[in-house]
Simulated scan of single mutants.
Amino acid sequence: MVQRQTPQPVVQLIGVSKSYGCVPAVQALDVTIFEGEIVALIGLNGSGKTTALALMAGLLRPTQGQVRLFDQEASASQNRRRVGLMPHTRAVPESLQVDEWIDFCSQRYDDPLPPSFVADVADLSDFQSAPLATLSNGQRRRLAFGLALCGIPDLLLLDEPATGLDAVGRTVLAQQIRHFAQTGRTVVLTTHDLTEAEALANRILVLHHGCLLADATPAQLRQQAGGSRIRCRTSLDLDWLRQLPSVTDVCREEAFVYIHTPTPESVLRLLFQYDEQLSDLAVSRGGLDDAVRQLIHTTSVVI
Results as ranks from 00 to 15, higher is better:
Glu253Asp: 10
Val92Cys: 02
Val39Asn: 12
Ala162Ile: 03
Leu205Thr: 12
Val301Asn: 14
Leu29Arg: 12
Tyr109Pro: 15
Thr50Met: 02
Asp290Val: 14
Ser116Gln: 09
Pro131Met: 10
Lys49Arg: 13
Asp239Ser: 14
Ala167Leu: 06
Val98Cys: 05
Leu155Cys: 09
Leu244Asn: 08
Gly184Ile: 10
Leu13Met: 13
Asp126Gln: 15
Arg141Gly: 03
Thr32Gly: 05
Thr299Leu: 00
Arg108Gly: 04
Phe145Ala: 04
Thr163Trp: 00
Gly36Asn: 06
Ala28Ile: 00
Ala52Asn: 14
Leu194Thr: 13
Asp275Val: 03
Ser129Leu: 07
Leu29Tyr: 07
Cys251Ile: 01
Ala174Trp: 02
Pro218Trp: 00
Val172Glu: 11
His260Pro: 05
Val187Trp: 08
Gly210Trp: 01
Ala74Val: 04
Gly146Pro: 07
Phe256Glu: 14
Ala214Met: 02
Arg80Tyr: 06
Thr50Gln: 08
Ala282Met: 04
Thr191Val: 06
Ala133Ile: 03
Pro112Thr: 04
Pro112Gln: 05
Gln78Arg: 06
Leu143Cys: 11
Leu29Met: 10
Gly287Val: 01
Ala52Ser: 15
Asp71Pro: 03
Leu60Cys: 06
Arg140Ile: 01
Arg141Trp: 00
Ala144Asn: 09
Pro245Cys: 01
Ile152Phe: 04
Ser47Arg: 09
Asp193Gly: 02
Asn137Val: 05
Thr50Trp: 02
Ser300Gln: 15
Ala225Pro: 13
